[in-house]
């Protein structure tokens, strides 16, 4: 129980840090803290496989991606608020929602299962159990995630690989014509290529 309280406090403080810290990089690092605490929480529940996956995927791969994006974009400090009152309205709504959730959880007549029950349900968090749920019960959802990733990939390529107007302000259409007349014998097979990168 003591372990749980410590871990819970650390993870909630980390989550608050993500929202409250001004520097995006600090917020991202704060998120790492929360994710790692969650991994430790999984260990205390004997869900070792989940804990390892949590560290590898979330704290590892995804956070590295976050940090890369933040550093590459080099977000400037823009603190011009368009509607200052909106911030307070948002605070109010968030507070009401949080209180409502806490009250709802306290009023919920069902008892929270104690650690032994959770442990039994997780069965040590072994990979077989997860695989059974993932590949049997949620087989369809698992396949659909693949389609979702494909859609994201096609969309990203479509957005990024777009012909841009060359410096000097020539429009895309004239640029294409210019490229085409440069190479009269070889009509380009690809509009992106034709745009003259």
């Amino acid at each position: 129980m003591v372990t749980f309280v410590i871990l819970a406090v650390v993870s909630v403080v980390g989550a608050l840090g993500v929202v409250l810290l001004r520097q995006p990089i600090h917020a991202a690092l704060s998120l790492v803290g929360t994710l790692l605490t969650l991994a430790v929480l999984f260990v205390t529940l004997q869900a070792h496989f989940l804990a390892v996956i949590q560290v590898l995927v979330y704290a590892g791969a995804i956070m590295v991606l976050f940090l890369f994006v933040i550093m590459l974009l080099n977000i400037e400090q823009q603190r011009k608020e368009i509607r200052p009152w909106l911030r307070w309205v948002a605070y109010g709504i968030g507070l009401v929602a949080a209180v409502g959730l806490i009250v709802g959880a306290l009023l919920d007549p069902r008892q929270a299962p104690d650690a032994a029950v959770a442990r039994a349900a997780l069965q040590g968090g072994n990979a077989l159990l997860i695989a059974e749920v993932l590949y049997f019960e949620f087989m369809l959802a698992f396949q659909l995630v693949g389609v979702l990733l494909l859609t994201g990939m096609v969309g990203a390529v479509a957005l990024v690989q777009r012909r841009r107007p060359p410096p000097g302000g020539v429009s895309a259409a004239t640029a294409r014509e210019a490229v085409l007349t440069d190479r009269p014998g070889r009509p380009s097979s690809h509009p992106v290529e034709a745009g003259g990168r």
Partner: peptide, 24 residues
């Protein structure tokens, strides 16, 4: 609900990109 969510995201992701199709 999970299948619904994934369908929603597949549909929306493609439409987000298509809405910005006129990139200039």
């Amino acid at each position: 609900l999970i299948t619904l969510l994934l369908g929603l995201e597949i549909m929306s992701l493609a439409v987000y990109v298509l809405a910005a199709w006129r990139s200039d």
